[in-house]
Simulated scan of single mutants.
Amino acid sequence: MLKLTLEYIPTKADVSFLMIKQTEVNTHPEYLYFFYTHVYSSIFVLLSGFISVFVKPNRYFKNLHRFFGKIYVILLLLLAAPSGIYMGFYANGGFLAKISFLILGIFWWLTTYKAYLEIKKKNFENHKKWMYRSFALAVSAITLRVWKVVLVYFFHPNPMDVYEIIAWLGWVPNIILTEILIRKKII
């Protein structure tokens, strides 16, 4: 993901993924701002999310967990999710892909906000569950790309059909698996 993010430094409108988004770039001047906000904030959301999820808040790492948790929540609620929701309106793959990305962005924001509310109430167990849900949605950026490689390698579908499929495969299996793990008390 870092490698993908670095492709967009310095900011240009004609590189990588943006090559197929030229209609949006040319007709909606704000699109690039939302795109770059999403790309640049999401890499830090993923990094801080990995650290927050895998560094348990015990007496040794409590402050580290809290620090990266705050970065995750602030960047996600204020930048990454809202810009992702905006981009969902312009997603490739047609109506179904747009609906998927909009639902993903809204759920991502809501699960994170719920986790934030739970930690403010010092309900650590519910906070943990909501953060797992939020992070499952955050890593959809990774699983989406894995599914894209798998689908293209094995099935060679039309490029826009790929977006319609991976829009759902990127996050739905993640959240289902997370719910199963939470309910079975594995995580």
Rank of each mutant, 00 (worst) to 15 (best):
M1H: 10
L2M: 12
K3L: 14
T5Q: 05
L6Y: 01
L6D: 05
I9G: 06
T11R: 15
A13W: 10
V15T: 14
S16Y: 12
K21D: 00
Q22R: 06
T23W: 15
V25G: 03
N26G: 04
E30M: 14
Y33A: 13
Y33P: 09
F35P: 11
Y36G: 08
T37Y: 02
T37W: 03
S41V: 00
S42V: 00
L46Q: 07
I51A: 03
I51R: 11
I51V: 11
F54K: 11
K56A: 14
P57W: 09
P57V: 11
R59T: 15
R59H: 15
Y60D: 12
Y60L: 12
F61N: 13
L64S: 12
L64K: 13
H65M: 02
R66F: 09
R66P: 05
F67S: 14
F68C: 11
F68A: 12
K70S: 13
L75F: 00
L75C: 07
L79M: 13
A80E: 04
A81R: 03
A81K: 08
S83K: 01
G84C: 01
I85C: 10
Y86W: 03
M87Y: 03
M87F: 06
G88R: 05
Y90D: 00
A91L: 00
A91V: 02
A91K: 01
N92V: 09
G94H: 06
L96W: 09
A97E: 00
K98L: 07
K98F: 05
I99Q: 01
F101W: 06
F101H: 03
I103K: 00
I103W: 02
L104I: 12
L104D: 04
W109I: 06
L110K: 05
L110W: 09
T111K: 07
K114F: 15
K114T: 15
E118F: 09
E118L: 04
E118N: 03
N123E: 09
E125I: 15
N126Q: 11
K128R: 13
K128L: 10
M131H: 02
R133M: 06
R133K: 06
S134P: 02
A136T: 04
S140K: 03
S140W: 02
A141W: 09
I142R: 03
L144C: 08
R145S: 05
V146N: 09
V146G: 06
W147P: 02
K148H: 13
V150Y: 14
V150K: 08
F154G: 06
F155L: 12
F155S: 08
F155N: 07
P159C: 01
P159Y: 10
M160S: 15
D161Q: 15
V162M: 07
E164Y: 04
I165R: 10
I166R: 04
I166V: 12
A167S: 13
W168C: 04
L169A: 08
L169Y: 12
N174V: 05
I175R: 04
E179V: 10
E179A: 08
E179N: 12
I182C: 04
K184L: 12
K184P: 07
K184S: 10
